[in-house]
């Protein structure tokens, strides 16, 4: 059993007040325990947790480059295996390092079948360098490289479905989680760590600075993403969805209105067609993962 009272991601890191990724790191290390080696890709978390000579990590931690976290983890895992050691390897990478830059190394590592757990904290853009769009940026979000204005409503492409791509590599356990449901997140991390083979968990981690909301709202925003159906918490075992969190769905507007990155959909004029397109994304999610709770009609 892992002692969940230990703080393995310590105070003093330089994340913004109300950072979703910092909370994700705390919960993941809590669930993983002390017998863990963390490999980080470049990203906001790597920068705010380890400005030299400081480190917030209390477990062995290594960082090399943006693109090669899974290749480094592969080497660490192979070496531990050869030495007969029992440490578990956990990768912590952002959505930029996972969806875009690290894709080649990830594909290779999952295909080779190393025994590690890959955690992607998904804050839906390159937050560290100033909010540039990534493959994880949702439809119509305004970022510095997909700015909303007279000619555009922001990011034109929908979010890439990485969990399905990873599952297609034959990963035994793939899951999505959210910082708004910490017990569920920690349970999934434990399950992934105890599963032999490469496992993947994508954690929805709102970024108050990048998305444009007050730091205190981080959990509320993460919860709204689930309640509107724009984020689905599910588990895939051997490529099949075995469990998905069911909700009584709210209209997507409630989620969009909380964030400045979607402000152009409401001001100066309300863009009904664009909001309907985003609602259709949520409806498709709901159908695909069967998350709707059917209320009995009175």
């Amino acid at each position: 059993m892992v002692d969940k009272t230990l703080e393995l991601f310590d105070c003093g890191h330089r994340a913004c007040g109300g950072c979703g990724a910092a909370l994700a790191a705390r919960l993941v290390t809590k669930a993983a325990g002390t017998n863990t080696i963390v490999v980080s890709a470049t990203g906001c978390m790597e920068v705010f947790s380890t400005p030299y000579p400081e480190t917030a990590w209390k477990v062995p931690w290594i960082h090399s480059l943006f693109e090669n976290a899974s290749a480094v983890a592969s080497g660490v895992e192979a070496s531990l295996k050869k030495q007969g050691r029992t440490e578990k390897v956990v990768i912590m990478a952002g959505d930029g390092a996972t969806f875009d830059i690290g894709m080649i190394c990830i594909s290779g590592a999952f295909e080779r079948g190393h025994d590690f757990t890959y955690i992607c904290y998904d804050n839906e853009a390159y937050m560290n360098t100033g909010i540039q769009r990534s493959g994880a940026t949702p439809y119509d979000a305004s970022t510095t490289t997909s700015p909303a204005g007279k000619c555009s409503f922001g990011n034109k492409r929908p979010k890439k479905d990485i969990p399905q791509i990873i599952a297609a590599h034959g990963a035994p356990y793939v899951a999505t989680a959210s910082i708004a449901y910490p017990a569920d997140l920690m349970q999934k991390v434990e399950k992934a760590i105890n599963t032999v083979g490469p496992c993947y968990i994508q954690v929805h981690a709102p970024c108050c600075t990048g998305w444009g909301f007050e730091g205190e709202q981080t959990i509320a925003v993460a919860k709204l993403a689930i309640e509107t159906g724009l984020w689905v918490n599910y588990e895939m075992v051997d490529g099949k969805v075995v469990k998905a969190k069911k909700v009584v769905r709210k209209p997507v507007e409630e989620y969009l209105k909380t964030q400045k990155r979607f402000r152009h959909l409401f001001k100066p004029t309300r863009q009904d067609a664009e909001i309907a397109t985003i609602q259709a994304i949520a409806d498709r999610n709901a159908e695909k993962y069967a998350i709707d709770i059917k209320l009995k009609k009175e």
Binding site: G12, S49, E54
Partner: peptide, 18 residues
């Protein structure tokens, strides 16, 4: 290899941001 003592970030007293 730029090593740092575990949890050395505690030197950074972030309470002053409040």
């Amino acid at each position: 290899g730029c090593r740092a003592r575990p949890g050395k970030a505690r030197d950074n007293k972030t309470g002053s941001w409040r």
